[in-house]
Write a protein that binds this DNA or RNA. Structure first.
Lengths: 357, 357
DNA sequence: CTGAAAGCGCTAACAT
DNA sequence: ATGTTAGCGCTTTCAG
């Protein structure tokens, strides 16, 4: 493959055209130089700037990075990108990146440690200044790759014992859900969580169970099916199979909660009445489906994670942050509220639709 | 800010340790070199590889890029990242990127041309080999920034007259939706689209209207409120306000469709009975809410867009692709199918819940 | 089979 | 106020 020499104008071209050295050009054009006027006469500055403009000069970030060992890029690892939750977090990260003129390199890891370490190395090859991991696993030591290279890292969404993280107050979220259900008179509670290594589910379940026990209720049943629609359906089927349908349900994701209520309703348990349901993340879906849900401030969570990483890169000491959560009550838990798409009657049967075309 | 010389081992260190020149090390360690054995004795190769391994050598991608003018990175522009649609497309792109060992730089543009051109320039500063735009605007000439630099680009999701794109067969999607509704005996059709510059909505509306007119129905009413939950609610209110509620509805997004049916239901129009609704993208939400929807193959769309870009970078000629769509029928259009969360009765009132904590 | 030398585009000591 | 020099880590002629 032949070298396609870049067509971009360089500082050298400007220097030649203006009749100064590249050094001077560099000093004037470097946006991080606080006092360009210290380095050249007003006249020179003018002509350099003008030449840069007419040539359409843009600095080559790669060359700068190679020289300065700072790339103005950060890596972002997400467990899976095709999910609302992570997309919202990433939107917050992207917003801060834009504000600071930083580029984000992204990669998803599907929560597979092998994949993650491979991609981490690859990302470090690009000399990212720091990395944000949204896919931390509790207790795991996979982050050594990044640590060994002394690249600062911040976790977001899921915490890990040994690293700085920005998470929602998941324990509070769990308590909030339980207290809400209890305040509605619910007594047989259940919670659907994800896998053990995800602090989100673990912590929310902890708070949920604590609050239930403090209220003198029997311990909530924990279903660890996950947080997808399918997971919710599976969990519901498990409840039905064990003839142990709760009257208060908390799911780790709005979709999972909806998947569960959908199945339960088909078996005669009316959402909002027979069973009060609370989802997580207060996503648009929750609104569209009148699902009570706990907002986790995902966008802001993303923002803070990059802000913290940048603080760290700027030399500051940083510590983990726990962001407040909020409860939005809708008809899925309180039937006295208006509702659009939730129902109360009993409907027979259950399939997943039919495909055409 | 002091230069923090990178702690990573370099080819020079390996060369010194093994007692050969960096040239030889480079030749052996370069993964793109088809025949390393052509360049050194088996013995030398062994010791270089061994030294590289023990030192934990990894090549500096930035240095390689600077030298070769190929960065093995691509830029990805999304209108907004916090949406299921784009997240699904991006997941496909990410998958291909992983397969080819390419890094993706991402940025969202919020469909704002100014923001996009700024960020495009910034991305080009990082010498991306190519760019994928998921935020094309019909008729706009904003892509000049990338073109001027002769950086190959591919559009995804939304098409544009002058560029290669990978899109769903949106016209077919519109026809499919209309034909389905018509086959159910619906005659007063409506469609909720996004803004004019989005080919997705424009094309789907075109197909939808065509099919309706070919069937001899009166022309469907077009509501251009957008594709969010709020947009759906607004469109529904507009229908109610004009006393012109359709019996068949097609929305550009599952969430938008759900937002509309939610409001309509609160005003006495039962989903699946009084009004048959079809959404777009067949997202998990559609499944969870028993919403009939048109699948657009988003993941594959993302995959193809990067594959095409890589073909282009490899020197091939590439042309636009239109991917097939599919209809999944659920209770929102066909009440004979089982349903979980959709309803038929009438519910009074309408708010957006209350906030606590 | 191996190496010396040049240089990608830029920045930063160290002159003057 | 400006230039000289060196070099970030790597690839790639060109020479042997």
């Amino acid at each position: 493959m032949p070298i396609r020499v870049s067509q971009r104008p360089t500082q050298r071209q400007i220097a030649a055209q203006v009749g100064v050295s590249v050094t001077t050009v560099s000093r004037i054009l470097n946006p991080d130089e606080p006092h360009p006027e210290r380095w050249a006469s007003q006249e020179t500055i003018e002509s350099i700037r003008k030449a840069a403009h007419t040539l359409g000069y843009r600095r080559n970030s790669l060359a700068v990075s190679l020289r300065t060992s700072r790339s103005q890029t950060v890596g972002v690892f997400l467990p899976s990108i095709g999910d609302y939750t992570l997309a919202a977090i990433f939107a917050g990260i992207d917003e801060v990146a834009r504000e600071y003129g930083i580029m984000a390199l992204t990669a998803s890891t599907l929560d597979a440690p092998g994949l993650r370490s491979d991609r981490t190395l690859k990302m470090l090859d690009h000399l990212v200044d720091g990395i944000i991991f949204a896919d931390a696993h509790l207790g795991e030591q996979y982050l050594s790759g990044a640590e060994a290279q002394r690249v600062p890292l911040v976790l977001v969404h899921r915490r890990h014992e040994e690293h700085v993280s920005v998470t929602a107050d998941d324990v509070a979220a769990g308590r909030l859900a339980a207290e809400h259900l209890i305040s509605l008179g619910r007594t047989r509670l259940a919670v659907i969580v994800g896998r053990r290594f995800m602090s989100t589910g673990v912590d929310r379940a902890t708070g949920f169970i604590q609050a239930a026990e403090e209220a003198g209720l029997e311990k909530p049943v924990v279903y660890d099916h996950g947080f997808t629609v399918q997971a919710g359906r599976d969990a519901a089927l498990a409840m039905l199979g064990r003839d142990n349908v709760p009257d208060g349900l908390f799911g780790m994701h709005d979709l999972c909660t909806l998947g569960a209520t959908s199945v339960l309703r088909q078996h005669g348990y009316a959402t909002g009445e027979d069973i009060a349901a609370v989802g997580s993340y207060d996503s648009p879906v929750a609104w569209a489906c009148d699902l009570t849900s706990i907002g986790m401030g995902l966008h802001n969570m993303g923002r803070r994670s990059l802000e913290l990483l940048l603080d760290r890169l700027g030399g500051k000491e940083i510590t983990s942050e726990t962001l407040p959560v909020s409860l939005t009550v809708r008809a899925s838990s309180d039937p006295s509220l208006p509702r659009g798409d939730l129902t109360w009657g009993t409907i027979p049967g259950a399939t997943n639709g039919t495909n055409h075309n």
